[in-house]
Write a protein that binds this DNA or RNA. Structure first.
Lengths: 183, 183
DNA sequence: CCTTGATATGCAACGAGTTGCATAGCAGGA
DNA sequence: TCCTGCTATGCAACTCGTTGCATATCAAGG
């Protein structure tokens, strides 16, 4: 639905090619909007056909050519229209929560396996939090002067940090609860 | 991907019809796995064909007949196999975060509109939190005796509560940040 | 009596998203 | 020299998910 809009925002922040967008989605934007490179290439084509973005081929030395895109006036208008629409409730798909409730119907060995999985999962999110915090120190040093765009990027990053902290606390709670069932 | 598994868990907790499942997905399970009734009916058919669930028609007085399902031994086995697989990283799609970063490319009037939207959105999540807390008081009173299944349901609910609280705090941060840009 | 609304199920069409594969240039190391 | 890996783009096939619509029963209210 709104992959187009996520791409528009990303290209307004910084023009780039499909490949570069895919990289950004893996890193920054992917915090709140995931997409694979195939999806991005396909949508970029459609967006170019609709006149939302303008692409041009850029030759590079030592690398294959790339096609770099920037947002057109029409694309910008499309974005601001979308910004004024109501926020859609997000579609939640949380694998782990289903598994935790499902663990009630598995045996002790199965729950022990799940404990290991939760620990692995927790370690991954600890890394994510560390990465966010490092990014925050790098891009938003205390006392630095920020423009509107940077302040907005920062508040979104703070959201990611708050989410990860909340998640880590909850995972501790989950581990404790699971372990109570395995004396 | 795992709608099947979410349905299996829900049916193990309590057998029921497609309609009832859709209701539960709106309420309880929908906290971490959304699905529409069409999807549920379609998947239930496939699951019955695969022998994961057994359906039987139940006549009701004063209401149309329904087809009630319960999980078969094969379905239970399928679920425990899935429980032992690694947890997939969840696909995040967070509309609002895209809009917040997009607000940098809108004018003051547009950002003012977004502030209203964020307030509306925040009010919705305040209601959600209140509903979770009421559910917690109802289903998990302090000092009550809980079996494994109930303890697991409770820890998942606590996750929902923690998420909503984190979100409300973050939305306050967002509002403050947006308002700084509108003197 | 007629409308509205809840229960209960479903089809058809479309759009979104994933998976697997293919291509091609060039860098760097074994 | 060959293999691996990164940059860079893309097709084809498939599954998943959403939207709009349709149907039928019955209760309650005006």
């Amino acid at each position: 639905m709104a992959l187009e809009h996520a791409i528009l925002v990303s290209l307004l922040e910084q023009p780039g090619s499909g490949y570069e967008l895919a990289r950004r989605f893996e890193r920054s934007i992917g915090r709140f909007w995931t997409a694979t490179h195939q999806q991005i290439y396909r949508v970029l084509k459609r967006m170019e056909a609709d006149g939302w973005v303008v692409g041009r081929d850029v030759g590079q030395d030592g690398r294959p050519d790339k096609r770099s895109y920037e947002v057109s006036a029409a694309g910008r208008e499309t974005l601001t229209e979308w910004l004024r629409e109501p926020v859609q409730p997000e579609a939640v798909r949380h694998d782990l929560a289903v598994k935790i409730r499902g663990a009630a119907f598995d045996d002790a060995a199965g729950r022990a396996r799940l404990v290991d999985e939760v620990r692995r999962y927790r370690a991954g999110h600890e890394e994510t939090l560390a990465r966010y915090l490092a990014g925050e120190r790098r891009d938003f040093p205390a006392g630095g002067d920020l423009d509107t765009g940077q302040r907005l990027q920062h508040v979104v990053l703070r959201g990611g940090i708050a989410y990860e902290r909340m998640l880590l606390d909850w995972l501790d709670d989950v581990l404790e609860t699971l372990l109570k069932g395995l004396p």
